[in-house]
Nucleic acid binder design. Structure first.
Lengths: 248, 248
DNA sequence: CGGGCACTTGAAGATAATCAATGCCGGTGG
DNA sequence: CCACCGGCATTGATTATCTTCAAGTGCCCG
């Protein structure tokens, strides 16, 4: 087993022991014993090519997924054809929790780059939760966090200006990459400007302008999807409420 | 809209058998046997005077609560003193789920009118969940719904115009009252304009204007906090103008 | 009866959306 | 290898919606 009590539910290849994402995975904190017992429950997942949907909003809940590699977005579709990205997922993320409410996925999940996922089939969710106390706590925690996140996001989207939202997004991505052992100062965004703007509830044009503005202000260096954060302090300040002094 | 299913675990007076909110309570659907077993676990809650905080954002999770009577609001406070109402709770609602994420309440809950609550102490949450399959499913569902609701709310707050948001709010309240056996066409709003505007992320003035506008348009009759819905069809159309897609 | 607070109403101003066009890159085929 | 195509991204100009500022009304409670 890993160096500590870290676990994995099911993976697309290999056992949890070998998973490179133990640090961030759902199973972090599990006792090895439980891991062993759970592992046989899971089935092999298949790789997701870019653009593929993992599940669709409204579909019956088939499974919870853990993202092993790649990146996905979760989004909602409205009757009038609008599409709103509600979340980006990087490796280690768990997907499908919002489907626990009524056994139907509340959002759609789509790979924005080629990805692979591990899978906990829905028929095993309840029994697994019963049998594995740590998983029980974990799922409850994640669900609770999911709810709390929604609240924070509501504030971000409604109380913060466009600049602050983008700063917030950049810091969020930075932290995500940092937690995963990548550079928090320089990374490649897997998603399009369209996706970012949807996520931040802004027009694409606005996002584009903000990127340019940040660059002119010396906060970042950006070239297409690659970003380098030059002034994390200032970005962080903006993300938490400050505004950018009209520069350029 | 998410509170149609609620549970009841402990009440401030009497046993669950006598509770007038069984219809909407968390325990709906429970096998009587389980209720009986759970009931001894709960402790008496005390009445909440208007304005009293049930719990504060950041406090350690003490318990989950079920609202027995009255009305509460959940809100987040930001570093810069802003306050954002994220939810209104009517009898039968369960509160505190967003604290499951990290054992600290993610929001504050305050009585907007005199209320009383039932209580499931946190030290019992895990064991109760273990022992009572139905409670397990129920809590998971609620947490999942909580997450899903956050998504819908994000769309409402970012994609919908002020009018649509208020229409949505009125319909939401109407449905809440309807489910609880009150008239869905005529009711008293327990919360201030300030609260409503915060909930909808609008300026108080805007909310006020919309109320007036709706009245002039013959959609509603409003006098201070009492509201009568005259044209539910139109209101619904406005609110649902951005309803979620049916999703196959 | 007076004071305070919640609410309403009006006018001006700002932020981001929309409309419109161009630029850039990567891929494809001649 | 180069020219062209299509999607994504950027930039500019104008506009709409809602906020903000400011003032006024009326209700409730002492």
């Amino acid at each position: 087993m890993g160096t500590d009590n870290v676990v994995h539910i099911e993976q697309s290849d290999g056992s949890c022991d070998e998973c490179s994402h133990q640090q961030v995975c759902l199973t972090r904190g599990w006792v090895p014993d439980e891991i062993k017992k759970l592992e046989p429950n899971v089935r092999r997942g298949k790789p997701l090519p870019r653009g593929e949907l993992l599940y669709r909003q409204g579909e019956r809940l088939r499974a919870l997924y853990i993202l092993r590699s790649g990146a996905l977005k979760s989004f909602l579709s409205t009757a009038d054809g609008l599409e709103q990205v509600v979340r980006f997922h990087l490796p280690g993320a768990i997907l499908g929790l919002d489907g626990l409410g009524d056994d139907h996925y509340a959002s759609s999940a789509q790979a924005i780059v080629a990805s692979s996922v591990c899978r906990l089939p829905s028929e095993l969710i309840n029994s697994s939760i019963e049998k594995f106390p740590v998983l029980r706590m974990r799922i409850l925690r994640l669900a609770g966090r999911e709810a709390a996140l929604g609240h924070e996001r509501a504030i971000l989207l409604t109380q913060r200006a466009a600049e602050e939202r983008l700063a917030s997004f950049l810091i969020e991505m930075s932290e995500q990459y940092g937690q995963r052992g990548f550079s928090p100062r320089e990374f490649n965004l897997p998603m399009s400007r369209q996706d970012i703007s949807s996520y931040l509830s802004l027009a694409v044009e606005t996002v584009s302008r903000m990127f340019t503005g940040f660059q002119n202000a010396g906060l970042i260096e950006v070239d297409r999807r690659s970003v380098r954060l030059l002034d994390m302090g200032e970005l962080r300040a903006m993300a938490h409420g400050g505004r950018l002094a009209a520069a350029n």
